[in-house]
C-alpha cells in the first residue's frame, strides 16, 4: 500500500482513521495544504488526486492507495519558479491572509482542466454543448467550493480568468 505525492512514493498509515490531510501535514510535513473546517465546508484542504480536485480532510488516506496526489508543493514550475496561477494571484491580489490560497490554487488548476474538456456547470446554459467562452459567472460557480474569508474572491476570479485566457491548449 502506497501513494505517490508530487512524484514521490510514500507508505500509507496503518491507522485507517488518518485523513489524507493529516497524512500530508502531520506525518509528511507537507504543510502547504491547509486544515480549515475539517468537515468539507471550506475547500482549504483541496488537493488533486488522479487529476481530480478533492477534499483531503474527507479522504481517508487508505482510500488513496495507489493514487497520485498533487499538492501545492507540487505546483512549482520546471525552473523552480512560481506556477503561472501563483504569479497571477500575486498580480491580482488574489489573497490577503493567504490561508485559503493553496486550496484555491489546486482547485483552480483542476478547474481549468474541467473547463477545457467541456464539463458543464450548474450555470452552463446548454448542458449538451457545454460552457461557451469563459465567463466570470462560470468561474465563480466552479470555484464555489473554496471560501475566502478575507473576501479576495474578485481578485481570485481575475487571476483564474487570466490563466484561462492565457494558455489555451
Amino acid at each position: 500500500m502506497a501513494i505517490v505525492i508530487n512524484g514521490t512514493e510514500y507508505p500509507l498509515p496503518d491507522d485507517p482513521r488518518v485523513s489524507l490531510l493529516d497524512l500530508l501535514r502531520e506525518q509528511l510535513q507537507l504543510t502547504g495544504t491547509k486544515l480549515g473546517c475539517n468537515q468539507g465546508g471550506c475547500g482549504a484542504c483541496t488537493v488533486i488526486v488522479d487529476g481530480a480536485r478533492v477534499l483531503s480532510c474527507l479522504t481517508l488516506a487508505v482510500q488513496a492507495d495507489g493514487r497520485e496526489v498533487r499538492t501545492i508543493e507540487g505546483m512549482v514550475a520546471a525552473d523552480g519558479g512560481l506556477h503561472p496561477l501563483q504569479q497571477a494571484f500575486i498580480e491580482h491580489d488574489g489573497f490577503q491572509c493567504g490561508y485559503c490560497t493553496p486550496g484555491q490554487i489546486c482547485s483552480a488548476i483542476a478547474m481549468v482542466a474541467e473547463y477545457r474538456r467541456g464539463d458543464p456547470s450548474y450555470v452552463t446554459a446548454d448542458l449538451a454543448e457545454g460552457p461557451k467562452g469563459t465567463t466570470r459567472q462560470e468561474i465563480r460557480e466552479r470555484m464555489s467550493g473554496n471560501l475566502c474569508r478575507c473576501g479576495a474572491h474578485n481578485g481570485i476570479v481575475d487571476a483564474i480568468e487570466e490563466l484561462l485566457a492565457g494558455e489555451a491548449p
Binding site: 468539507g40 475547500g43 483541496t46 481530480a52 480536485r53 478533492v54 477534499l55 474527507l58 479522504t59 482547485s107 483542476a110 478547474m111 474541467e114 458543464p120 456547470s121 450548474y122 452552463t124 448542458l127 449538451a128 466552479r142 464555489s144 467550493g145 473554496n146
Partner: peptide, 23 residues
C-alpha cells in the same frame, strides 16, 4: 445524461462543490 436526462445532470451540478462531486 446531459442530452437524455438533463434534469439529472443539472441536479448533480446543483449539489455540493466540484471537489465533493469528484468524490
Amino acid at each position: 445524461v446531459r442530452t437524455r436526462y438533463p434534469v439529472l445532470s443539472r441536479a448533480l451540478l446543483a449539489g455540493a462543490s466540484a471537489q465533493i462531486r469528484n468524490m
